[in-house]
Design a protein around this nucleic acid. Structure first.
Length: 1174
RNA sequence: GCUCAGAUGGUGGAACUGGUAGACACGCAGGACUUAAAAUCCUGUUCCCGUAAACGGAGUGCGGGUUCGAUUCCCGCUCUGAGUACCA
């Protein structure tokens, strides 16, 4: 680097030689000694990397400060200007904190498991790991050139086995834990087991499944191992359960709620349906209350907290049981009894509802069940069967989308049954309606039409009674949910007010055992799995249909290779394709014998990817078994009871088929075919192929063969079984394919995207530890994140799950803080700013189209109803027949060929073939055509704010901006754009101003010949004032994350110092330190030019503010009359209010404004204002 | 529908606890330098009337209110953005 040159560049000579070439390269050639951002930035980025300048210390006497960014998913598109916004802010903050004497941890990594890489893999066959690697390289290059002060030695990648080993480990801790409500804390499952062994299930207050067993200690000990495990699974913090999920058939995967938009997948836009599926879930609901309470202890943006509050959705109320009234009496002929679907005994049965207004219970005039409610079938009377069936069918047809859109129509059906009001025994009609959701509360509501608008409409529509319960209720036209007034029509609470009434009702309900106060949460347990390849494998295998953890020392369970990244033919997730994706227990740990036969449990937890279908199959199998064909029956007598030496099952579901007979151990399927086999050959072959794929051999016999000589057939089968090896690949597909081999099938789904990101901030504390997720020492030193910056789109995903895992880890004494992110800032989204050209197409008599592109103003005229298109085209010189139609449309144009909304016409013509010969009607009405013609005027494009996306041609790439202006300019410009939290459109237009600022700053240190020149003279008062103003301003601004205002202040400071012709070393050096967190490269360069040690700038001390330099003797008071400023008057600040007032009132100009009137009142605020009331 | 955030020149925005609205920057207009262009520098730039100018009036989404004084506080409304949804 040449620091200075006494010889000025002969730029005239250069200009003459290179001529016109210079136009495109003004900065680099013309000003040889000017601010050379390219060299400077490369030099210092290299220096920082070489010297590990930003490596955080793990033990330091300095106070710690942890600045974290939400790590990115490395997408193939690379960074656009929106991405680094938050990173720049956090980097400025991190650098500032270093200057303030903190030991700063500022790491970066990648959330590198995710769908796009997998989608790409599906399309191209490219392994997602490779795509991810490539994308990370791009991200790293782009991040590096922005000059972030990341400690790259701590980089993490969620997709790296070193990392996900610990994600899996935490999963195992969750599996091995339960939530003890008695102490509001998670505990090891061993504690629970101990309790069961000693006391049975009594006295346990746990967060668990609804259907847990009640048992004594003796009963517990009498249970088989599998039975115990099945029971424990109902308590574990991560557990399997059948959940309704958003299933996307096209993607072959389950989507999170926020990945579904209006019934379609966010990625790809494929239809999504609701489906029941066995899924891993996380018992986040255990932490609902703590997640809610914790919000009060953290410094997060209010809207974000609000979102989490709403998501958790706590409502305080009561659960009430409405006993079912005696079922309708059978009719004399006894037919009702015969066809009654109830079958069972409804004695003592009840409908449980949750309500937030239990005080309104005497206003209940009907009860509504969700159509999916489990008791609907039993409670429908024969008379109503038709109506109910029709309604359920109609509901099923409605997609989620329809249900959402249709909030006006009232629909429902009467079941014919009644329930009783538990407090007064009144008979109440029981209805079903789809406005009641099965998934919320108990799937039933008590309807109070006088107080709830939805119930009100329902009652009006079906002509049900509406009973007022408050003396001041007004219910003529709509429901009135008031809590004011006294109760009426309400039995023993008549005359009471809301608070006592509610208390009295709850007390009574508890007394008679019909209800109790209850807190309900909207939040559901989080589904923890996706039917995808590119994610963390779940460290679980299945034995006898029950999940078991692998050993801790076997972690990580590395993601296996697969031939394709698609679901298997049988609908299993891609891991179903992996060779030998089975758990082989270590030899020392022989699998317990005698545990393979608990078939009643087997299959409870492993289902096919399509459980609904599987249930049907099981029904078919049962029917088939009960009605065997003659041949089947014959053969079964010879195969049953292991007569062949092997266990044979009949009518057993395998994948999507039912095998007539099967040996799961040998993988042999025996099929009996009737005469129709020939007709069905194609279908049967396909079936054989699929079964082969699942690891089964198929042999077929004709029914006649069996009937004529069953013994021969049995022998054939026996021989076959003896020669076949044990089936290697255990497909977890079937319901009860247990114990077929010593290898146990691993879980096939992988963890969801949020798994890896739910604890990553701890890994940065000790990124290379391979014996712990992070050492205790590191965790105790760094504790938590002091400042977390990221987008609000993660409000109810990542940020909620992270808090959940953190609380769990705290319970397990793995970490020390209850909340992981003390302070959080949401950076606003950077929106795209699209440019448009406006095309108008006319057609001549032969229907041949001609295209014209109208500049903004002409387009506006064209759309003005007062103008006529014919006249306009006449004016432009293209007369058209007005009778012919025209067609017009705005067209996106690449923002990179538009400058300040002026289209670069040459570039436009070259952009795409269709525009090469375009006729442009310019702003002034002149014409630009490829053959020449007036090109004087400009083409002005239209503007619209939209999402930044490739398809809208509005993506601005930071690489281009860095190439043109440098990273320091980009950093400052991104901050200059506006408040960090605010969403705003990206507009490159203002970037020149920031670039000019940096050049001006550079110039302060250089003379006219660009020679580095600073003076050692005493700083002047004015210089010190400028300096100390900026010292304080930046301190204040950074502390309140108002980065845009400090950029302005820097500009003001540099403008002032330029006016003062300041080149004072003391002043400039302090300025370099202050500016260094914003524009680190230029400052490092100037820092060394000033004679300081290279690299020491990052750890210099922030200059100390001295207020005495800012004290003013005088202040130019604004003098206002009735609040309107009229003039300014300089008055000494040493004077008190009365003296100031006297000076003002004596001033000639003031008197002129007063126009002879004397003010009624004079307000003097010292150093602020003088106001006179006239 | 509900919840939250926001609305200031041609544009991005500033005004931090009520005290000179429009800082800073872009753009635009005019000028200097230059054969010319680029770059750089200087001047002006909220709107309206008038005008060379002084000066006058209006003005922070709309309508009210509190106050000596309101972009800032209060009430009502309009619009925009985000989140969420037959949530019992």
């Amino acid at each position: 680097m040449v620091l200075a040159s006494p010889i000025p560049t002969n730029h005239q000579l250069t200009t003459k030689l290179i001529g016109i070439l210079l136009i495109s390269l003004p900065h680099t050639l013309n000003y040889k000694m000017d601010y050379q951002f390219k060299d400077i930035e490369q030099k210092w980025q290299q220096f920082w990397a070489d010297h590990q300048t930003f490596k955080a210390e793990d033990n330091s006497t300095k106070p710690k400060y942890y600045v974290l960014d939400m790590f990115p998913y490395p997408s193939g598109a690379g960074l656009h200007v929106g991405h680094p916004l938050g990173y720049i802010a956090s980097d400025i903050f991190a650098r500032y904190k270093r200057l303030k004497g903190f030991n700063v941890l500022h790491p970066m990594g990648y959330d590198s498991f995710g769908l796009p890489a997998e989608q790409y893999a599906i399309q191209t066959g490219q392994h997602p790991a490779i795509t991810t690697e490539t994308n990370i390289a791009t991200y790293r290059r782009q991040l590096d050139q922005i000059g972030f002060s990341f400690d790259w030695s701590r980089e993490v990648r969620t997709s790296s086995p070193d990392y996900y080993k610990w994600t899996q480990w935490i999963f195992m801790q969750l599996f091995n834990s339960w939530y003890n409500k008695a102490i509001e804390k998670a505990e090891p499952i061993s504690v629970l087991v101990k309790h069961f062994e000693q006391h049975g299930s009594g006295g346990i207050n746990a967060v668990c499944d609804e259907e847990v067993l009640n048992f004594s200690a003796t009963e517990w000990r009498a249970m088989s191992h599998d039975e115990q495990q099945a029971e424990l699974l109902k308590y574990r913090l991560t557990y399997l359960r059948e959940s309704t999920v958003n299933w996307c058939p096209a993607l072959g995967t389950v989507l999170a709620n926020d990945e579904v938009k209006d019934g379609f997948s966010e990625r790809g836009g494929y239809p999504v349906e609701q489906k029941k599926m066995m899924q891993w879930s996380m018992r986040i609901t255990a932490y609902a209350e703590r997640l809610l309470q914790g919000l009060d202890t953290i410094d997060w943006p209010e809207p974000l907290k609000e979102m989490q509050k709403n998501w958790i959705g706590k409502s305080t109320g009561a659960s009430v049981r409405f006993p079912i009234a005696a079922p309708p009496k059978p009719s004399p002929e006894g037919r009702a009894l015969e066809v009654s679907p109830t079958g069972g005994d409804l004695e003592g049965a009840y409908i449980e509802v949750f309500t937030t207004r239990v005080d309104t219970i005497f206003g209940v005039t009907f009860v509504v069940l969700a159509p999916e409610h489990e008791l609907v079938k039993e409670l429908t009377t024969p008379e109503q069967q038709g109506a109910i069936d029709a309604y359920i069918t109609q509901t099923k047809k409605k997609s989620e989308l329809d249900r959402m859109a249709d909030t006006k129509t009232v629909s429902g059906a009467f079941t014919g049954s009644y329930v009783l009001n538990p407090l007064n025994g009144e008979k109440i009609q029981l209805w079903i309606a789809d406005y009641v959701l099965a998934g919320y509360g108990t799937g039933a509501v008590m309807a109070v039409p006088s107080g709830d608008q939805r119930d009100y409409l329902f009652a009006k529509h079906f002509d049900l009674p509406i009973v007022p319960i408050m003396d001041i209720q007004k219910i003529e036209t709509e429901a009135d949910p008031t809590k004011e007034g006294r109760y009426i029509n309400s039995d023993f609470i008549n005359g009471l007010f809301y608070t006592e009434g509610t208390k009295a009702v709850i007390a009574k309900l508890e007394e008679i055992g019909a209800g109790k106060a209850k807190v309900n949460f909207r939040m559901r347990d989080a589904i923890f799995g996706r039917q995808r390849y590119w994610g963390e494998p779940v460290p679980v295998y299945f034995k006898d249909g029950l999940p078991h953890l692998i050993e801790e020392n076997e972690l990580p369970l590395v993601l296996p290779e697969v031939d394709k990244y698609l679901p298997t033919e049988s609908g299993e997730p891609p891991l179903g394709r992996a060779e030998n994706w089975n758990y082989n227990p270590a030899p020392s740990k022989s699998p317990p014998v005698g545990e393979t036969s608990s078939s009643h449990l087997a299959g409870n937890y492993r289902e096919t990817a399509d459980p609904v279908y599987y249930e049907q199959l099981k029904d078919f199998s049962r029917d088939n078994r009960n009605q065997p064909t003659e041949a089947e029956n014959f053969l079964w007598q010879l195969l049953r009871n292991e007569q062949t030496g092997f266990k044979i099952r009949r009518q057993h579901a395998i994948g999507q088929y039912i095998a007539d007979f099967v040996s799961l151990q040998k993988g042999l399927i025996i099929e009996l075919d009737g005469h129709h086999h020939k007709l069905n050959k194609e279908a049967d072959d396909a079936r054989t192929e699929v079964l082969n794929h699942l690891g089964f051999k198929v042999i077929r016999f004709i029914n006649d063969e069996v009937l004529s000589n069953p013994q021969k057939v049995a022998n054939d089968i026996k021989q076959k079984l003896e020669v076949l090896p044990d089936r290697k690949k255990v497909s977890p597909t079937g319901g009860d394919l247990e114990g077929a081999s010593e290898a146990y099938a691993y879980e096939l789904s992988t963890m969801p995207g949020w798994a890896g990101s739910s604890w990553y901030w701890y890994r940065y504390m000790d990124a290379h530890n391979d014996s712990e997720f992070a050492s205790k020492k590191a965790v105790e030193y760094w504790k938590d994140v002091d400042l977390y910056i990221g987008g609000s789109e993660h409000a109810t995903g990542h940020l909620l799950y992270s808090r959940f895992w953190n609380k769990f880890m705290k319970d397990m004494n793995l970490v020390v803080e209850e909340e992981p992110f003390k302070k959080l800032i949401n950076q606003g989204m950077i929106q795209g700013r699209s440019n448009f050209v406006y095309r108008v197409t006319t057609f001549d008599a032969n229907e041949t189209p001609s295209h014209y592109y109208l500049s903004k103003k002409q387009w506006d005229r064209y759309n003005d109803p007062l103008e006529s298109a014919g006249a306009l085209f006449e004016e432009w010189g293209f007369p058209i027949k007005s009778s012919y139609a025209t067609y017009s449309a705005p067209i996106h144009v690449d923002v990179n060929i538009v400058n300040n909304d002026v289209l670069d016409i040459e570039k436009f013509r070259n952009w795409r073939g269709e525009f090469a010969n375009a006729i442009l009607i310019l702003e002034d009405g002149s014409i630009s055509s490829p053959t020449g013609g007036g090109r004087e005027g400009a083409y002005i494009c239209g503007v619209e704010i939209e999402k930044m996306s490739k398809s809208k041609f509005n993506v601005v790439n930071p690489d281009d901006l860095i190439a043109r202006y440098g990273a320091d300019t980009l950093r400052m410009y991104e901050m200059f754009l506006g408040p960090l939290e605010q969403s705003k459109p990206w507009n490159t237009n203002g970037i020149e101003g920031v670039f000019k600022f940096l050049r001006k700053f550079w110039r302060l240190f250089h003379n006219d010949q660009w020679v580095f020149t600073v003076s050692d003279a005493e700083p002047s008062k004015a210089e010190l004032k400028s300096l100390h103003k900026i010292i304080r301003k930046v301190e204040e601004d950074v502390e309140r994350f108002s980065f845009n205002t400090s950029v302005s202040s820097f500009m003001i400071a540099v403008n002032e110092l330029t006016d003062l012709k300041c080149n004072n070393k003391a002043i400039l050096q302090d300025l370099v330190i202050i500016l260094s967190s914003y524009a680190p490269h230029i400052c490092e360069e100037l820092w060394t030019l000033l004679g300081n040690e290279a690299g020491a700038l990052s750890y210099a001390s922030y200059p100390k503010f001295n207020g005495t330099y800012l004290i003013e003797d005088e202040f130019a008071y604004p003098i206002s009359i009735n609040g309107k400023t009229k003039m300014n008057l300089s008055i000494s600040l040493s004077l008190d209010a009365a003296a100031t007032e006297a000076i003002v009132l004596a001033n000639a100009d003031v008197l002129r404004y007063l126009d002879g009137k004397s003010p009624k009142k004079v307000i003097v605020v010292k150093g602020r204002i003088v106001n006179m009331v006239v």
